[in-house]
Amino acid sequence: MTIAIGEKLPSATFKEKTADGPVEISTDALFAGKKVVLFAVPGAFTPTCTLNHLPGYLDNRDALLAKGVDDIAVVAVNDWHVMGAWAQQTGGMDKIHFLADWDGAFTKAMGLDADLSAGGLGVRSKRYAMLVEDGVVKSLDIEESPGQATVSGADAMLERL
């Protein structure tokens, strides 16, 4: 069952690459007492994710923060090495959180997993964006097609805010 607006995020621990190596970051540490934009991609380095979805959030980071957002994070069912390399290559390191849901536990607990085996990707995340306040989902927009980033894009999030 897909998480719904008004529900608390499931408890999870992600890995994130830092200058000192990988660190673990819990949902409590990331979301407690904060207003956070969380968006998910089917995979780091995939075309729509790299060329469309992520750049919108990087380009609009300051505008989102100016609207009262405390933090921005992207999550994918990838390992922290891949997420860290993606952060570095795209210029996103230290601008937003690049969260590795390496085993898909968080994604599955939210009911937002997608079997993309037909495309050679295995089980990944659906593409979505949500606004989370103090760990509670305030808005959730899921893309109908993983190859699009419209309702889950930064422009749509800015309009919601």
Rank of each mutant, 00 (worst) to 15 (best):
L9K: 12
N60S: 11
W102N: 14
T50G: 12
D101P: 02
V36K: 08
K15N: 10
T18S: 09
P10T: 09
A12V: 07
G120A: 03
M1I: 09
A105T: 15
A76P: 07
T27A: 10
T27G: 09
W102R: 13
D79Y: 00
T46W: 03
D62C: 02
T27V: 10
G21A: 10
E143R: 06
V132K: 02
A154W: 04
G84A: 01
M93D: 14
A156Q: 14
V77N: 03
A85L: 10
R127C: 05
R160P: 00
Y128Q: 02
K108H: 08
F31E: 09
A29G: 00
M110H: 06
D141S: 12
T27H: 11
P10H: 09
S117K: 01
L38T: 08
L30E: 04
I3A: 06
G92R: 06
G135V: 06
K35C: 06
A129T: 14
L9E: 10
V23T: 13
T2R: 15
A105S: 15
L58V: 01
Q148H: 13
I142E: 12
T2H: 01
A63Q: 12
S11P: 00
G33R: 12
A109T: 11
V36T: 15
N78D: 09
K108W: 00
G122A: 01
W80S: 07
A19G: 11
K34Y: 08
V77I: 13
H97Y: 11
G21I: 09
T2W: 00
T13Q: 12
I96K: 03
K8Q: 13
L158T: 09
R124H: 06
G84T: 01
G21H: 08
K95N: 12
N60Q: 07
T2E: 13
E159S: 14
A154Q: 04
L54R: 09
A32E: 14
M93L: 13
I25G: 05
D59C: 00
L158S: 11
E159K: 15
A63V: 01
V82D: 02
E24T: 13
A44L: 06
V74C: 15
V36M: 10
K126H: 04
A149L: 01
K95V: 14
V74N: 04
A44C: 08
S145P: 00
D155A: 15
L99R: 01
L158Y: 11
G21F: 09
V151T: 13
